[in-house]
């Protein structure tokens, strides 16, 4: 089942962050706890680890996007053999979060 990676909220006052670099490319296998990307907050640069194992199926945001609000989707992790419908995954994600 596809898992949406979000811009993490790494502090109570953090509103947004910028992507510095993706360490993984689309199609790369990832382990839980492996570093996916690094982000920059108003205070520091931090590694973002994968919450679950799978394949980095889609990168939704890059350094060129500048500031991204916390908890906005930035990528999708899926099972190795899974076909990902990005729009469907994101609308499910937003529906669940709205609930």
């Amino acid at each position: 089942m596809a898992y949406v990676v979000v811009m993490p909220r790494m502090g109570q006052t953090m509103e947004a962050g910028e992507i510095v670099e993706w360490m993984k490319r689309e199609g790369d296998a990832v382990e839980r706890g492996e570093v996916l990307l690094s982000i920059q907050t108003d205070k520091s640069t931090l590694d973002v680890e994968a919450d679950c194992p799978g394949v980095l199926a889609k990168i939704l945001a890059t350094p060129e996007d500048g500031e991204i609000p916390c908890l906005e989707p930035i990528g999708i992790i899926a099972a190795p053999d899974e076909t990902v419908d990005v729009n469907a995954v994101l609308s499910d994600f937003r529906a669940q979060r709205g609930a």
Binding site: V6, P8, R9, Q12, V48, D51, C70
Partner: peptide, 12 residues
């Protein structure tokens, strides 16, 4: 740790 970064924990 996962719940924290996904905005589900509201304190440090």
């Amino acid at each position: 740790a996962i719940m924290y970064k996904n905005g589900k924990v509201f304190c440090a």
